[in-house]
Design a protein around this nucleic acid. Structure first.
Lengths: 376, 376
DNA sequence: GCGGCGCATGAATCCAACG
DNA sequence: GCGTTGGATTCATGCGCCG
């Protein structure tokens, strides 16, 4: 790794599960060169915020005459659309080499670049799982009244291939979204206020991303201890949130000013305590309960009958927690429900019901009762 | 046009400004073949809802076991990603030939295809103006809990090139959005209820788009009388809305069932009356008034002084409606304001103020008075 | 101390007609 | 085609100053 100038941030953790990876460090280097030096199949996730290739024209003024501070940094300049395309495919290819087979990649962009990025992702054999829209609650207006206010950015989440596995903490997202499935459109304000890193009153990085965005991504798609690589580290939002969430991180960045700001910021970030992480990570709000346990514990007795909500199908409870229908078919509550409906799958907990004085109730209600009675 | 079987819908309007175009008709044909038969630089807008190339796996069932009705039609099947890419580039290239120099294209898609579409649009020399997110207020949930609820689709709006002109009815959009700039994220419900076309209780088209979506697009980016082409016409949402809004339309569609449904639907669509259209179209609430006209009409007399809001700059009104500052600089209200502020431009109407008993007032207030006094 | 007002600012592909 | 000129154009938020 002669090309890399490693810079440690804070204390190197005592446990280093992958000795060859430069964990919790910023590699000062060109992004592609640094990625080439990393071992294959070694990181769990990549979050990338590459240059957008904005191609801005002349100066822009607000209606009040004030000047708009545009992104004119050299790192966002490319000679042509083809040059940008080549750059995009090069770093995405390296990313694919570095990712574990069950890893995943997130890339953020705007209409200037995201279509090129997405097309490259598909061509390289990644499998897109979702595109996510970051709706900005406070976007910059369109000052000349020539287009729609550009009020969002787009993220792509992709696995390593069509059949590849990936991490998705469904329960964490549902909990975070007030017990509704998390949707593909997320609303956050742009990064500002105390969160925005400044030096002498001037923003350190023109496009610092909000921590809330990274928080949701890392919470949804990584496990504690997972390694997250950010090849366009900037001022280290990914590192700061990874540290907070008990994930390991690797940053790649060229600009010394950005690196210095990131180091300071990450050193100050406070990790959440482990019990908090465990709670957020838990795949289910409640532990699993087998139907047989309810039978064992007398909530339903063998020989009783359960029916579907319309009383079309009827089955007898057996001692082992399986069901037997009148036609002789047997199986678990899920299996028999699927068989009788001629469906590929079935949630037996909500499909099967039992008779009460107040009419039918789903057997799931008994599971709730059991949990209430047994949980501390 | 031997390959085309033209089908008229309703009465052909008596005024046909472009005799060579098959206006207000559905062309029963393959989309690329039909486009090849249309003259170059002849249509003002293309709205396209191409196949999404969904690549669905096996059947999908809801948690209650019911079957999810997926898009499995032959027209959404492609042999490979490359085949889809080639198809996309072919029709987009024809579209570019057909569009007028100051025309524009809209394409809708999902993450399955929109990145390929967007990349092709850029490669073909179109210039992306915005990407728009259609947020579905009632999306289908992710039944397996394996991903985020796919709750949006993406539209791309592009002009014919970087320097090309295009139509954007800024005021109409701002009015439609309660006097705030229209943003790039739009919320609509998916097409359902009475709007959803059905035959024998079964939906005619699997991906019928809501009319509200087309309404906003056509209102924003076309003028009355403009010609809108939809190369994937389906059940004719574009035609129905175009007729309602006083725009001309051309549809291309292969499936006879879709054509039949579209014909019936468009025949029943009621055009808005002309005065309504004019109101929605008006670029400004008020006509232009030159500053000199106010001087001519005695609202301000030559020799009086105007100042900026902070009283930093002061200028004398001259008889011809120009201003002269104390330092001797002269020019229009806009020009002098820009000069004195050392700014590239300036809106003189809001920059310059005059003294009243209640303090300073912008000269724009006098323009309003003038308009009130002279407008019928 | 608190509320109100003014100012600054954020990934921006940001004018159009006429001579 | 190009240079000139008239004139149209902004939303949410945070911060600091002032009363």
């Amino acid at each position: 790794m002669g090309v890399l100038e490693k810079i440690k941030v804070g204390k190197r953790p005592t446990i280093v599960p992958m000795a060859e990876l430069p964990l919790d460090q910023i590699l000062r280097s060109d992004c592609i060169a640094a990625m080439r030096a990393l071992p294959a199949k070694s990181v769990d996730m990549i979050f990338a915020d590459p240059p957008y290739n904005l191609q801005l024209g002349g100066d822009l003024a607000r209606p009040d005459g004030s000047h708009v501070d545009a992104v004119t940094d050299a790192w966002d300049k490319f000679d042509s659309l083809d040059a940008y395309d080549a750059f995009t495919r090069a770093w995405l290819a390296e990313a694919k080499r570095i990712l574990k087979d069950n890893g995943a990649i997130w890339v953020i962009g705007s209409y200037h670049n995201i279509f090129k990025v997405g097309a490259a992702i598909q061509d390289l054999g990644y499998w897109i799982l979702n595109d996510i829209v970051w709706r900005k609650s406070n976007p910059m207006p369109n000052f000349k009244g020539t287009r729609f206010t550009n009020a969002h950015e787009t993220l792509i989440w992709a696995s390593m291939g069509e059949k590849a596995r990936y991490t998705f903490n469904y329960r964490s997202m549902k909990t975070l979204n007030d017990e509704l499935q998390m949707r593909s459109d997320w609303e956050f304000p742009v990064c500002g206020g105390p969160e925005r890193l400044k030096k002498d009153g001037i923003k350190v990085h023109p496009t610092q991303k909000p921590e809330a965005l990274l928080y949701r991504i890392l919470l949804a798609c990584t496990k504690p201890g997972d390694v997250v690589l950010d090849p366009f580290f900037g001022t280290g939002t990914t590192g700061a949130v990874a540290k907070r969430l008990g994930r390991r991180w690797i940053g790649i960045e060229r600009e010394p000013d950005y690196i210095a700001a990131a180091e300071e910021r990450i050193a100050a970030a406070l990790p959440l305590d482990e019990s908090m992480l465990k709670t957020m990570q838990s795949p289910k709000a409640a532990p699993k309960v087998a139907f047989g346990v309810l039978v064992e514990n007398g909530f339903l007795t063998p020989g009783r009958f359960v029916v579907d909500a319309r009383r079309k199908h009827r089955a007898m409870i057996r001692a082992d927690g399986s069901l037997e229908s009148l036609c002789g078919a047997t199986g678990s509550i899920h299996k028999l429900g699927a068989t009788l409906q001629n469906a590929p799958s079935c949630n037996g907990w909500t499909y099967w019901h039992f008779e009460t004085g107040e009419g039918l109730k789903p057997i799931d209600a008994l599971r709730q009762e059991y949990l209430l009675a047994t949980q501390p």
